[in-house]
Amino acid sequence: MNAARLLNRLGFYAAVAAPFVVVAVAEHPFFVQIAIGVAVSAILALAWDILSRTGQVSLGHAAFFGMGGYGSALLTPVFGPVLGWAAGILLCGAVAVLLGAVTLRLRRLYFTIATLSFSLSIQVFILVTPDLTGGSTGIMPPVIAGGSPPHQLLFITACLVVAATVSDIFLGPRFRPAFFMIRNNPHLAAASGVPVTRLKILAFAVSGMVAGLAGACYAGLYGYVIPEDVFTTNWNVLPLAVTILGGMDTTLGPIIGAVALRALEEVARHFVGGVGYQVVYGAVIILFIVGMPVGLVGFARGLVRRRRKPAAEADTVKARLAS
């Protein structure tokens, strides 16, 4: 990577982290909680997007999210907090490799159904193994930063920057063209010397680990997690909604999408009680796939590009999601 690009990315990470840091320093309790939620969603959505760049659309990332939380809880007593987290995240990567190998041959919708089934079966596994995982009574992961929300926000912001860096590596010259070729035409990728299977599993492993990082962050907020907190359809659909809203195939998209979706949630919460605010997920997915398949970031980029020359690439993403 040349110096100019490196500087550009460092500036980008600083710009991403700055608003979160400002909120943490201001210590406004409501906004600190909102920002923590946004950062966790953004990390999970980045994980989802990395996988989707190879054409693998997952509806099962709650599995890795939950395993990150449970892994950090179960392994911290064995390895200590730092290595426990690392081991929990590596466990997510290992499971992702296995799931990726099993689902390799599944095309599009069948792949998506398989990931959804996987996340449901992981929840059942937790419920039927109370001796190991606490079952339905839940588990106590290590609390981040002694339970101080502003410090937790700073820590999770650092995790978000790590996730953004990983996402950028997989948008770099080594992976972006190869991933898009695998997604669009795996035969052409293989005929160009790309080890298609290996890269798909690599994307799955990295995606699983980043999702596990998000889950460990989430589980570490209060130091107490039950299966229903993490292994829910909510966490399966959220990364999809966030990324489609913000823009796929980018690092900025999932971050902007997490902010925008949270804002929509708060507006919806104002009008609908209980968990009714979750209606925005479905609404966002449908409206954006139909009306703005490139998402907010893609739309903004399109505006900039259109000043120079007309672009017609929205169809690609639309076609992919529609199939």
Binding site: P177, M181, N184, N185, A191, S192, G193, V194
Partner: peptide, 25 residues
């Protein structure tokens, strides 16, 4: 080998498509 009807990803540039075999082959 080449393909008769090349289906390349529309969003990739000429440079990116050629770079794939340069990197991987």
């Amino acid at each position: 080998r080449t393909y008769q009807v090349p289906k390349v990803p529309k969003e990739l540039t000429i440079q990116e498509v050629i770079s794939v075999p340069l990197l991987y082959a």
